[in-house]
Nucleic acid binder design. Structure first.
Length: 218
DNA sequence: CTCCTGTCGT
DNA sequence: ACGACCGGAG
């Protein structure tokens, strides 16, 4: 991939921030809650995740020990509004086992970012995007999160070409933008907001889009 | 590529 | 009645 244009990426960021304002993603929750939220929100609307977490919260404290003590089918029942509840019940418990084995937050925090990333990716149910969500929003590591919205928005803008693999895109953004945690945090949140509301897969609302003037896709 | 699944907006 | 949802595994 040709090097991403840093000025272009910053211009897009400024425009999105001016349009939507700060998104305040995951500011108040504990790192552990951010991590389980990252698993539950896989291909799932966040509103449904909040319902699932609320039901779980009513039943047990949100700790790895309590989540592991709950029988898998009862955990799945709490997670029903989330969708994929049987899968996510298993993924959540697999994550909690690994989390405790690693010595919890205190143990994980000592790892370098690359080592922590590889540790996360070895857990069943954690792929590149979920791992990077955790690295950025729970551990505040300078990792740019790439998701389906990122691909769609920047392909339409002519910044990305199709069929680029995850790592290529992630490194492209990180190289262009520098290691800036607050920027990565806000940028990803803005991309999600924009992809959801305006730059939708079908029938994108191009006439209302704040990036319309600089977008060759419409 | 297919499966996993409830909930929302259109 | 759909399609889409802050994806990942087989």
């Amino acid at each position: 991939m040709a090097t991403l244009d840093a000025k272009r990426l910053r211009a897009v960021y400024r425009r999105l921030l001016a349009e939507y304002g700060p998104q305040h993603w995951w500011p108040g929750d504990s790192p552990f809650e951010v991590m389980i939220g990252a698993i539950l929100t896989q291909n799932t609307a966040w509103a449904n995740v909040e319902r699932g977490l609320g039901r779980l919260c009513d039943r047990i404290p949100l700790t790895p020990q309590a989540i592991l003590s709950l029988p898998g089918d009862e955990l799945a029942a709490c997670l029903r509004p989330v969708g994929y509840f049987n899968l996510k019940s298993q993924r959540l418990q697999a994550f909690c086992r690994a989390y405790l084995e690693a010595g919890g937050l205190a143990g994980l925090r000592t790892l370098e970012t690359e080592a922590l990333r590889h540790w996360l990716l070895r857990i069943h149910g954690i792929g590149p995007e979920t791992a990077d969500d955790m690295l950025l929003y729970a551990f505040e590591r300078p990792v740019f999160v790439v998701d389906a919205y990122t691909r769609r928005v920047f392909e339409r803008l002519g910044v990305l070409t199709e069929n680029l693999d995850y790592e290529t895109i992630r490194r492209g953004f990180e190289t262009a933008l520098g290691q800036d945690v607050p920027l990565f945090n806000e940028y990803h949140a803005l991309i999600v907001r924009h992809g959801k509301e305006l730059c939708r897969r079908t029938r994108p609302r191009c006439p209302q889009c704040c990036l319309h003037a600089s977008c060759p896709g419409c």
